[in-house]
């Protein structure tokens, strides 16, 4: 199943804008383009995406709530049958906005929270009071019946607080807690030394996170990192092995440029001028991501079939080669038995 080739992505992460009211130290997209395509052109792009067979779009960026036409764009998308969700910092999400999001067809909204401690989150995000407003946003979303999740990028400020993050998620009755791996793209790269963990520390984090995932009830703890194959914890139900980028999902920037994921800065086409299915089928970059070859310690690693060298974005960012072993991998440098 590792070579499953779909006719189009199942889901698209779409940065309809790249403006933001926050200044987070790990942001992958501050250096991205701020050009935006006009609303009419965007609508025809969304029609294209639906025609290609895409099931869902997740708006991100940037802070989607800063886009003046977000509600109209979401209503247009959901009206065409797309499942619509977004990631937000929650600052602009009061009760009235939650109602409007519900009416526009949002089924799920993820709120980014970096720490259970308000002062840590606020300092990291550069905005006083942001933690309280993020939690309030979760409450408003729940009140109107939108499924909620908390997204936490794991880094040095939160890696040893799994229990506290889980307690916060349970207290606010979110459906899902996403522990995202640290990507080393954009500002994440500039602040890598300060924020990223060592491979040994990643091992400890994932060991504890997997234990929590197995024991905590009423909360889906999601770990999107292929290297957890090393702990025999990959989701057996996934349609593909390794990372999903370029296999199940695709990223679109605010100017329409398509990239395999938000963390790989290689433009493979533009949704305004190109045919989505054609790009999805013919892109040399996607082909390479779907057919990775083991190098270094991955050659001979007993987990390769599941892990496929880990996160391609991270390998590319830190080594310049997609096929390099994931720099977070704690597997032995001698080929594993």
């Amino acid at each position: 199943m590792s070579n499953l080739q779909l006719k189009a992505p199942l889901t698209i992460n779409w940065a309809i804008n790249n403006s933001c009211n926050f200044a987070c130290s790990h942001c992958y997209s501050r250096e991205d383009t701020h050009d935006e395509i006009s609303r009419d052109v965007l609508y025809s792009c969304i029609e294209k995406v639906v025609k290609a067979g895409v099931f869902s779009v997740n708006f991100g960026g940037g802070e989607p709530l800063l886009h003046p036409d977000l509600l109209d764009i979401a209503a247009f998308s959901s009206g065409l049958g797309l499942r619509v969700s977004m990631n937000s910092n929650g600052w602009l999400l009061d009760y009235d906005k939650a109602v409007a999001l519900k009416n526009a067809g949002f089924t799920k909204v993820g709120i980014s929270i970096d720490s259970h401690l308000p002062e840590v989150h606020d300092k990291f995000r550069g905005v006083a009071g942001s933690h309280a407003r993020a939690l309030a946003a979760l409450k408003h979303l729940k009140a109107v019946g939108i499924t909620t999740s908390i997204s936490t990028v794991i880094c040095r400020i939160n890696c040893s607080t799994i229990d506290e993050l889980v307690a916060m998620a349970l207290e606010h009755e979110v459906g899902q807690l996403n522990f995202h791996n640290f990507k080393c793209s954009g500002l994440g790269m500039s602040n890598k030394d300060e924020l990223d963990l060592t491979p040994e520390e990643w091992k400890v984090f994932y060991r504890d996170a997997i234990a929590a995932k197995r024991t905590v009830k009423n909360l889906d703890i999601s770990l999107d990192d292929p290297i957890i194959a090393l702990l025999d914890a990959r989701d057996a139900g996934s349609l593909v092995k390794g990372s999903v980028c370029g296999k199940l999902s695709l990223n679109i920037k605010s100017n329409g440029d398509m990239t395999p994921c938000g963390f790989i800065p290689i433009v493979i086409g533009n949704i305004v001028r190109d045919d989505l299915q054609q790009v999805w089928k013919d892109s040399v970059v996607l082909d390479k991501m779907r057919n990775k070859q083991p190098t270094g310690k991955c050659s001979g690693c007993s987990k390769y079939e599941d892990c496929l060298g880990g996160c391609t974005a991270r390998a590319l960012a830190l080594t310049g080669d997609m096929n390099s072993p994931d720099p977070h991998c704690w597997g032995s440098d001698a080929p594993a038995k």
Binding site: M1, L4, F55, S56, T107, D220, G237, S238, L239, L248
Partner: peptide, 11 residues
């Protein structure tokens, strides 16, 4: 064919 229900997928 692919079935998709948000969280889970099936081929």
């Amino acid at each position: 064919a692919i079935l998709f229900s948000g969280g889970s997928m099936l081929s």
